[in-house]
Design a protein around this nucleic acid. Structure first.
Length: 479
RNA sequence: UGGGCCGUCGCCAAGCGGUAAGGCACCAGGUUUUGAUCCUGGCAUUCGGAGGUUCGAAUCCUCCCGGCCCAGCCA
């Protein structure tokens, strides 16, 4: 309950009052008595299984309970004694007397009250009988003078009952129930029951696991309240049962983060680079912009030295012409630093590249050359001896099936690679005191946020969403 | 003939009798010290289908097809 309040607050909403149906238990009881007195409700002694049998099927009408025609006096007495705890749990229920042959099953004398000795978080042990949803909700809405009671599609069949109850008691008002489709996303599940199962079976860490499409999960993943509200504005509200593509959600957060995230450099999969002609002890402070489109967001200094780390993906031995990054003999720009040319490659015994030897052009400090020559690629880097070590969590869709919830075994469609943990990522030193409330763009890779369960000594960054990657698309097409 | 609801571009979604908005995605260009961002252009002769009414239909009528929900003393 408090978690919900917290989520709603975080999303940016306030409420004028907090109401609980349990505040109306006494009134609800009185309305039930009113129905009994009108001959519109009765106490039934049938067991749950018997009631099910008597209910009939979707295509066949039900039949009346043998207790359906008890006198008002007897019903009043029995209901009173239900409340007083004279009967065992499940022994009797109060039912509305409507129509056992109704085509809408919800109208076949639905249960209004059942006996259930359970501790209530607000009313404690005051009650042993509790009202059913269909009886409680409409009356609570009426008491609160709600004008429109919004709910999801599966309650469409309940609306006749909602109206029946209010039509047959002296209701303080008669709200209108309107049903809408629930928000569903592809490649994930949104039902509370299924989300709970994911946690219970340890497929995710918790309710706020960054892979969960919960408010707390999205928050920990790095989504902002603004982006979620924008997403909701875009998708609209209708009665059509639909599934939204993740791309829409991702677009909303990218749009927000592109505008507000601080740009930094972080190397996820480091490859060592030695600048052979750079003085061994020299360190230069390069000036970098915090946001190229917003100079007012300032600049920062990033240390540069002889030994650096660059992204493994930014080097390719047999690079195609369209590959604008580093390869032996090719020149690239190190963002905010120098142009470098790869001169040699060092491999380990397995033949894997473990280090690059490069030379830099001292005339290109800051990233531009006096002779105006062009370099196609600009890559990010971090100085080896200044870098901080961090863990980075890369998240992907939770399921491999577009509608896992619609299959007979949704857990069978889990994406085994929904979380990829990267350790010893090398980040620029300014990130040593990263702000947990700020969002960062590791330039050229993705948006990240400090995990809110992290501790300062061992920073963990969660990937919110990747940047659009045209190269990945081209690369994929070429294979 | 159980009942209820829904069908407009790949995914969402306006439209409510006057001749198909918009977003996402996608495609093609341009700018760019992020292959990001940004900018420009393209993307439904057609609204699940077939008839009908009308000068005119996605919008009204009829029939058909497809999808979702309901047999908790859960919500």
């Amino acid at each position: 309950m408090h978690a919900i309040e917290k989520d709603v607050h975080w999303l940016g909403f306030e409420w004028s009052g907090l109401y609980h149906a349990s505040d109306y238990f006494e009134q609800l009881y009185d309305y039930a008595v009113e129905l009994i007195k009108k001959g519109l409700a009765y106490v039934d002694d049938l067991s749950a299984e018997q009631i099910r049998e008597y209910r009939g099927t979707l295509k066949q009408p039900g039949k009346n309970s043998p207790h359906r025609d008890r006198s008002v006096e007897e019903n009043l007495d029995l209901f009173r004694r239900m409340r007083d705890g004279e009967f065992a749990d499940g022994a009797r229920v109060l039912r509305a007397k409507i129509d056992m042959a109704a085509p809408n099953i919800n109208m076949r004398d639905p249960a209004l009250y059942r006996i259930k000795r359970t501790h209530h978080h607000r009313t404690g042990d005051d009650w042993v009988i509790y009202p059913m949803y269909d009886f409680t909700h409409c009356i609570s809405d009426a008491i609160e003078h709600i004008t429109h009671s919004l709910c999801t599609l599966e309650f469409e069949d309940h609306r006749p009952l909602y109206d029946w109850v209010l039509d047959n008691i002296t209701a303080p008002s008669h709200p209108r129930q309107i049903e809408f489709a629930r928000l569903q996303l592809k490649y994930t599940v949104t039902s509370k029951r299924k989300l709970h199962q994911l946690g219970a079976a340890k497929h995710v860490d918790s309710w706020d696991d960054p892979r969960m499409p919960t408010i707390s999960g999205l928050r920990r993943r790095g989504y902002t309240p603004e982006s979620i509200r924008d997403f909701c504005d875009r998708i609209g509200v209708t009665k059509k049962d639909s599934f939204i593509e993740m791309a829409v959600l991702e677009n909303s957060i990218r749009e927000d983060l592109n505008e507000h995230a601080l740009r930094v450099m972080g190397v996820l999969k480091p490859l060592k680079v030695t600048i052979e002609n750079y003085p061994g002890n020299q360190v230069e402070e390069m000036e970098a912009q915090n946001h190229p489109q917003h100079p007012e967001m300032g600049t920062r200094k990033v240390p540069f030295s002889k030994t650096l780390y660059i992204e493994r993906d930014d080097f390719m031995e047999d690079a195609p012409k369209k590959f604008f990054r580093l390869s032996v003999g090719r020149e690239v720009r190190l963002r905010y630093a120098y142009y470098i040319t790869c001169t040699d490659v060092i491999k380990d015994d397995n033949g894997d590249v473990i280090e690059l030897i490069c030379s830099y052009d001292p005339e290109t400090k800051g990233g531009s050359s006096p002779d105006g020559r062009k370099v196609k690629g600009t890559i990010h880097w971090v100085s080896a001896k200044h870098a901080i070590d961090a863990q980075v969590n890369l998240y992907d869709r939770l399921f491999t099936h577009p509608n896992p919830g619609g299959t007979d075994n949704f857990l069978g469609h889990l994406n085994p690679d929904s979380l990829q943990v990267l350790t010893h990522c090398k980040l620029e030193p300014s990130l040593a005191d990263a702000d947990p409330d700020k969002h960062y763009q590791f330039e050229r890779t993705a948006y990240f946020v400090l995990d809110n369960h992290t501790d300062a000594a061992h920073p963990v960054f969660n990937r919110t969403v990747t940047l659009r990657d045209t190269w990945a698309k081209i690369d994929k097409q070429n294979r």
